[in-house]
């Protein structure tokens, strides 16, 4: 099928990103250069990602090691380094970290509860036109299963920096889902971000929108605006931390609002929506949970991230529809 730019499917916005906004992976890269200089224990393990091309590591260059295109080894080496007292950052794409190298992530890193930071770029549909081989629509399902692992999904440049700085204080492993190209910033005025705690971006008494990742959170905010026009007040919670899950926020949402709708750039099975549904089902309250996510299919269409997000139904319109149906049921 040929995809053409139409009103419903506009041309990819990535072709003209706002130059002032850095991508989350660029924010991460600059932070890592800072960490390398500040802390002797920090080691950057690369898998030939190209993210560090042109970076001047100066006096810390011995602690940048390109291990080539071999992700199982990458995870094992990181675990060995961490066990020997280092703080390694592992750099690869989300899909390679969580599917190709999953057993090494599970056994070498999670089982030993080692302080390895996995910088997983190209999360969700961020790889865009690179296609299904590079999309990562299962990583949140996989990583939230693993004991000891903390799972964070920054939303924009500022939250990337805040979350990584907080993650750096953790004694165990952290999975950090990053993007590829710049995505729009959240509107100004968001409350301070605390790892492990849902960020309340909007208050609302009628329904709760639970979202993670740049486009889903923005779509939730947009949907909340639309719903407000129809007299429905939606709270918007940014679940930048998928594990440990802020179950308290979900319990409050289920008890105080009439419906919960989750939004994520991920397959519906196993991700934040599943985690939310599990939590709320166990409460025994009748609050319906609905999920806006990719269905049981590989990403449809081709194009950049924002185009694919839209094309695959992770939109404010879809959220509004789910809210309307949930309230009608």
């Amino acid at each position: 099928m040929t995809t053409v730019a139409t009103e419903a499917h506009p041309a990819p916005a990535e072709t003209a990103p706002a130059p002032a906004i850095p991508s989350s992976r660029e924010v991460y890269r600059d932070l890592l250069v800072e960490f390398l200089a500040a802390d002797e224990r920090v080691v950057c393990l690369d898998s030939d990602t190209g993210l560090f091309n042109g970076v001047d590591f100066g006096g810390t260059s011995a602690r940048y090691v390109n291990l080539g295109i071999a992700e199982q080894n990458l995870m094992g080496v990181a675990a060995g380094l961490a066990k020997a007292g280092r703080l390694p950052f592992v750099n690869t794409m989300a899909t390679f970290a969580t599917t190709r190298a999953l057993e090494s992530l599970k056994l070498d890193i999670a089982l030993n509860n080692l302080p390895v930071r996995i910088a997983a770029t190209h999360g969700g549909l961020a790889a865009g036109h690179l296609g299904s081989t590079h999309h990562s629509l299962e990583d949140l399902a996989i990583t939230r299963l693993l004991p000891n692992l903390t799972v964070v999904v920054p939303t924009d440049a500022a939250s990337t920096e805040a979350l990584i700085r907080q993650a750096q204080e953790l004694p165990g492993p952290v999975y950090i889902r990053l993007g590829r190209n710049a995505t729009p910033d959240l509107p100004a005025g968001a409350p301070p971000l605390r790892l492990g705690e849902a960020q309340r971006l909007r208050e609302g008494d009628d329904v709760t929108l639970v979202a993670t990742g740049p486009y889903p959170v923005l779509a939730a905010l947009e949907a909340a605006g639309t719903l407000a026009g129809a007299g429905i007040e939606a709270a918007v919670l940014n679940f930048h931390t998928v594990k440990p899950l802020d179950t308290r926020a979900l319990v409050t949402a289920a008890r105080t609002t009439k419906a919960v709708v989750t939004v994520e750039e991920h397959w519906a099975a196993g991700g934040l929506g599943s985690a939310t549904a599990e939590t709320i089902a166990e409460l025994g309250v009748p609050t319906p949970v609905r999920r806006v996510a990719l269905g049981d299919h590989f990403a449809r269409g081709t194009g950049g991230q924002s185009h694919l997000v839209e094309r695959n139904g992770i939109t404010a319109t879809a959220i509004v529809n789910q809210v309307t149906e949930a309230l009608r049921a």
Partner: peptide
Amino acid sequence: HGLPLGVGFALAARL
């Protein structure tokens, strides 16, 4: 799994 881990230990010793 042992050899990747071993590379990590050996790299740490070198650093």
